[in-house]
Design a protein around this nucleic acid. Structure first.
Lengths: 356, 356
DNA sequence: GAAAATCAGGAAACCGGTTGCCTTGAGAAC
DNA sequence: GTTCTCAAGGCAACCGGTTTCCTGATTTTC
């Protein structure tokens, strides 16, 4: 049986050094040690140096719990993903973590997995840990019920938003993104644009579709057929392409509600002998590199800039913690990313050699 | 200018209730209140009830920092992803979070982004916060230098492993996974198997390739050609297929180092008029649903069971925290997931109707 | 009815820091 | 030489809990 590792036998770095250890080694009182390390009080330079070098020698790191007890601040925030951590949460989390880390705050990760009970459990846990603030994220942009009322700490919703307009939410401008996609296709001279997207009941699908329709209407145009609502999959993209090809109306562009759908459309068009972008230009949504780059040809897409959105959410949370709340919905713009699926055709062009 | 929200004006739920508040409301001392809430000491039932109802009324939640200061335990662990949070880290994190949450531990998320300086910064932060333990994860299974030596808390490496054999690491049995893939193809009667995978210098690519070669050798067979090392992309899968088709040797199966590569192979085979699985059976690696399900046909793949691996890592960490360390490399098995790319052909079969 | 045992709950130390206040001693001013 | 001033640093309260020890009251025992 291996010897148990206890506080006692763990060697020099076993038990973390406390400020008492530092004070003893430097030959001063704990109060003086604290002042020396924090640049407070009035002390001789020599004393400060002595304390500092004692702290270095012992590898002293102040116990965060003690600091918290004094200041009431934990320098900690909670991040709750209402649904499972996934493709959308990651850049959000990365961005938030970026901003918060710069402010020396640590992040508690909570994965609520679409379970309201779990969500409330995490909320209580975070409050019990006296986090300075909470970021709530999720996969859908649709507004959701506030996670709690009259909470003792500020809350910022990122990507999703709260139904309470007084809550602080940061959301991508999906409608604006859809308009950018349509404008881009119009600028290329395409006039017969179709739209294939996710389920009609999905907030993002509905918003993007109606923004696209409105933008075309503003130019005196209409969509080719009605928006094709289906699901967020390549298979649906392929199937929808079959529907489009079988209809009477010709089309020279497809704006898709996601990159996965767009990729399905690209594959189906190629299988049917239509060239992208020459015959049909294609724009996706999400700018998901895995899809957009592997697509043949690579996809032009709308990027929601989720990492920036996460950073914004974190910045707003930090501001709220510092007493400067910014309630309301904050909309952050999307970006059009150009690739070959809408490149101006270079004809007559040989088939491009595939990049390794 | 909106009124600043301060501790004073935040209403009943503004400042969190302390045990002193509870004690005062119940008309007892703080010590008694503590005993009542924790079932310690000897108190009248009526007193306990009175304290408990006072606590409920005030919504009392013990201040975690105070508990930490007493017990020395934080019920908190740190999770450091050495590289960016990504496709592999997520299931690991989810699994770990699952096990830890069940043990009422919270998780600090740290994204080191392949930056050793950032990594050490996070390590110091976590130690200063007196986490009870640390999980280190990363995208590559290759062994890495220990994150620190003689640390005061237990560390478990998940997915990646430490070069120090005394450290506790949990890694997937990639070689075993590769053998399962080969065995499966052999069981289908395929004898002319090719292998397309990632860069030769990548640990996973090398391990999987050599395990596949060895397994074939054990059956008196050899790979069709040498393993084709390239990159982890669909484009490489397509390009490698071109190489295979252009060579003299025939092949009736391809084992791929990733699902992305496999998908590229599938697309290129179809474009060349070879049927999957009838002419060529295909096995991927990772069981990444986005790729495996969207592939035409859906891909048979090897699943590394990362979520289970994360759970195992968390369980080992909890055990170590409780004084039962389990040093060394722990290998957890992979699972073969069957789909149509290796289905036994049903002939003569019409083209399958695509599922919506 | 007095001594002993038991019970209920209060007082205070403690965890590890920070900070306001007080003491000490040295040098300056007279 | 005495008082004043100020720098230097010690002391102790405090943050919010837990836990040990102790006191006072009640009950038990003979």
């Amino acid at each position: 049986m291996p010897p148990r590792k206890t506080k006692e036998n763990a060697g020099s770095s076993g038990r973390p050094a406390t400020i008492s250890d530092v004070a003893r080694l430097a030959g001063v009182s704990v109060g003086t040690a604290s002042k020396a390390l924090n640049g407070r009080g009035s002390l001789r330079d020599e004393t400060r140096r002595r304390v500092r070098s004692a702290a270095d020698e012992l590898g002293f790191q102040p116990n965060t719990a003690a600091l918290t007890l004094n200041s009431g601040r934990t320098y900690t925030v909670g991040m709750i993903t209402t649904d499972t951590i996934g493709r959308f949460s990651i850049p959000l989390m990365t961005g938030a973590e970026d901003s918060l880390g710069a402010g020396r705050m640590s992040v508690f990760l909570c994965d609520a997995r679409d379970d309201p009970i779990r969500e409330q459990y995490y909320l209580r846990t975070l409050l019990s840990r006296r986090v300075d603030g909470i970021i709530v994220t999720g996969r859908r942009t649709q507004a959701r019920a506030p996670i709690g009322v009259d909470l003792p700490v500020p809350v910022v919703y990122a990507f999703i938003s709260s139904t309470n307009p007084d809550d602080c939410s940061v959301v991508p401008d999906e409608a604006g993104g859809a308009r950018k996609a349509v404008d881009h296709l119009l600028a290329l001279g395409r006039r017969r644009i179709a739209h294939v997207t996710g389920p009609e009941h999905h907030h993002s699908a509905a918003v993007r579709a109606s923004a696209a329709v409105d933008r075309l209407a503003a130019s005196g145009l209409g969509l080719v057929g009605a928006p094709l609502f289906g699901e967020w999959s390549e298979a649906w993209g392929r199937q929808a392409t079959g529907i489009l090809l079988g209809a009477d109306e010709e089309f020279d562009a497809v704006f898709c509600g996601s990159d996965q759908i767009a990729r399905g459309v690209a594959d189906a068009l190629r299988a049917a002998g239509r060239r992208v972008p020459d015959d049909v230009a294609l724009v996706g949504f999400d700018n998901w590199d895995v899809m957009a780059l592997a697509c043949q040809p690579p996809l032009t897409s709308i990027d929601m800039e989720l990492e920036g959105l996460g950073r914004t959410a974190a910045d707003l949370l930090l501001a709220a913690i510092n007493g400067e709340p910014a309630p309301g919905r904050h909309v952050s713009p999307c970006r059009l990313v150009l690739r070959e699926s809408t490149a101006v055709a270079v004809r007559p062009g040989p088939t491009r050699v595939e990049r390794v």
